[in-house]
Design a protein around this nucleic acid. Sequence first.
DNA 1: GAAGGTCATGTTATCGTTAACACATCTGCT
DNA 2: AGCAGATGTGTTAACGATAACATGACCTTC
Lengths: 328, 328
Amino acid sequence: MTDVARLAGVSHQTVSRVLNDHPNVREQTRRRVQAAIAELGYRPNRAARVLVTGMSQVIGVVAQSSALYGPVSILNALAHAALQHGFTVSVESVRALDPQSISDAIGRHRDQRVAGLVVIAPVESANEALDAIPDDVPLVTIDGDPRRTAGLVTVDQEAGAYAATRHLLDAGHQTVWHVSGPADWFDSQGRVAGWQRAVAEAGAEVPPVMQADWLASSGYRAGQILARMTEVTAVFAANDHLALGILRALHERGKRVPADISVVGFDDVPEAAYLIPPLTTIRPDFAAVAAASIDLILEQVRGGQRLSERRILTPALVERDSVAPPAG
Amino acid sequence: MTDVARLAGVSHQTVSRVLNDHPNVREQTRRRVQAAIAELGYRPNRAARVLVTGMSQVIGVVAQSSALYGPVSILNALAHAALQHGFTVSVESVRALDPQSISDAIGRHRDQRVAGLVVIAPVESANEALDAIPDDVPLVTIDGDPRRTAGLVTVDQEAGAYAATRHLLDAGHQTVWHVSGPADWFDSQGRVAGWQRAVAEAGAEVPPVMQADWLASSGYRAGQILARMTEVTAVFAANDHLALGILRALHERGKRVPADISVVGFDDVPEAAYLIPPLTTIRPDFAAVAAASIDLILEQVRGGQRLSERRILTPALVERDSVAPPAG
DNA sequence: GAAGGTCATGTTATCGTTAACACATCTGCT
DNA sequence: AGCAGATGTGTTAACGATAACATGACCTTC
């Protein structure tokens, strides 16, 4: 920086002003400094800036490491959205969402002096660590506890589940079965709630929830059971991978989809359109979730205070070929 | 840090020595300092340390943002492997792997003073940006150009493809067709080469390559063509999602798998075992790729010089139900 | 034309850490 | 006892940026 200042014939402070777009610099001086920067290929030292300002241009993200489509899509979109505002994201992946792991990850972020924190906190056990974060750190949770008052961005799981179930009922099914994600995920809870509401509103009997995790393997196991029950004609799976496993189990036992049983998924993974049969599903807008999160966090960074605003995004139904009227 | 020093009754330099595990500190002093650190909840300021040492404990990773299973798995495993050595990874996701985007990402990493760089560089266009990196920056490329001499970690695409093709030939098929990934990916090129070698070695005719990308949609299109050609009895797909699309297209046109046509994929995504039928595929060890990369980069960080070592990992065949002898 | 502003720039102090060197105090050996 | 070398600790300077204040030049305004 000293070299740049010397070459441009100004003080280092003026260079700093040019770098930070301060208003009080003569146009001519600014150009001279910029030329010197370009000529020397100078790049500012972030660490020095962070040291003196006490804050980096980085958004810290905490997420569970997984290859699940939803979280991965959100992560990618977060990086992209942040970049458009001149920020970088730094992701701390945790193995499991226990309070200790989460607060370790948050600690590592705070050591880096991140400007704000985005935590993908889909389970209850995250709350404890979240509550321990000092109030002066901007915070947004994605898929977090709907009951918490902090900044929250999420897709409306209940509305999506309601739409999926409603779609099956509208096709003429008496009732709809549900294969759910892990019980401790808020996503699962919301989807169960939306499904129950739709079935109950239709005056139908609400079948018991079939508990699973998010993977095709557990969908397959649930499907094996569903295939044995002759009264089942419609299933809403909590995500597309579960649906994939169900499809396979039904196929194995000679149940045709959608002729014998209709299935709806959730997420609209890229493969959904190429399953046998193409899967009707619910599509959340992950890019919008990310954009809203970055928006909300930057508002807090600029304002210097916590915001407890919520942004809830409604997902859309994508119709394909896995739903038909019941056989009878 | 000054507070800690005062509480422990030592100088700040001694605190620094305790923090960095310097040998010349009396055991008793060390304990006193550690107690003070714990009592005050002191955490060192990374930025100050980076400023003075000129290097952070961060490994910079450059990857294309995508939800593809392979890259995502590697990313997660990299973070985990780095953490075990006290390092953090920082990922810069680029939209496309053009030279400009890559060198921007590398520039952002260097501004942060990363200790080393891991670039997932599966296409030729990455080379240009890679060559522009100064020699004193530790560098490892994953899935990079096999012809480059820099540190390289990759799975042996050719061996995997050879095993897949061999497996089909061993089942009795006259020849094997191949649906390939994008032509500019080294992964694709390696898989094509392995497939060709196996077919040629068996003295069979090598069919033309069917060009696709990595997505189920293009697998579906390729499958529609394959299904029309009565002589096709065995297909090796460059990845599992392609295979998924192929499976669907074959099913639609009344071709049974594996009775009429056998299919092998690549990657062993978690859903592979639950396709219709369960997919025989090649499983690369992504965790091992990540571990080798971190290993190799840390060796360079410690040694202070570039290493042009290569670590090539052989993937394994996973047999399921999508392969059978030809019908005739 | 003197007072008071604004504008453009420079000077100095500071952020929190590690490096380099200086200085005691021990240890073991002759 | 005396001295070399190890051991433990303190002092000072630096890393590269921004903040806060100081300064001088140029406008207004009455």
